[in-house]
């Protein structure tokens, strides 16, 4: 499977990770080698098989909808490098 420079651009845009020009050829090599291995899947006809998203068939369990105060905003926000008055700070989005 071939990965083009345009594919790399799209992947970079979607994943929000920069791909440097000087590493792009080795990255293309890695990705192509992984996708070639993955393409072995095409040997199987799976047209009549249902996808299995999860190994265990149980429905997800729900807990009682009871208010808990175990999340402290201040404590969680301590983890952020930029915050003010309970808000997370980012560079300006709207001029």
């Amino acid at each position: 499977m071939k990965i083009t420079k345009q594919d790399l651009k799209n992947i970079s845009l979607l994943s929000k990770i920069k791909i440097d020009e000087d590493t792009s050829s080795s990255l293309i090599k890695d990705l192509e080698s992984i996708l070639t291995m993955v393409n072995k899947m095409d040997e199987l006809d799976t047209s009549k098989i249902n996808p299995l998203t999860h190994p265990i068939e149980n429905t997800q369990t729900l807990r009682e909808d009871i208010e808990k105060k175990d999340i402290e905003r201040e404590k969680l926000q301590k983890l952020s490098k930029e915050k003010d008055s309970g808000f997370y700070l980012t560079p300006k989005v709207i001029e």
């Binding site: 899947m41 799976t46 098989i49 249902n50 996808p51």
Partner: peptide, 12 residues
């Protein structure tokens, strides 16, 4: 071609 196919193989 990739994700859905892989999930079907997971079922197999």
């Amino acid at each position: 071609a990739f994700y859905n196919k892989a999930l079907k193989i997971r079922n197999l």
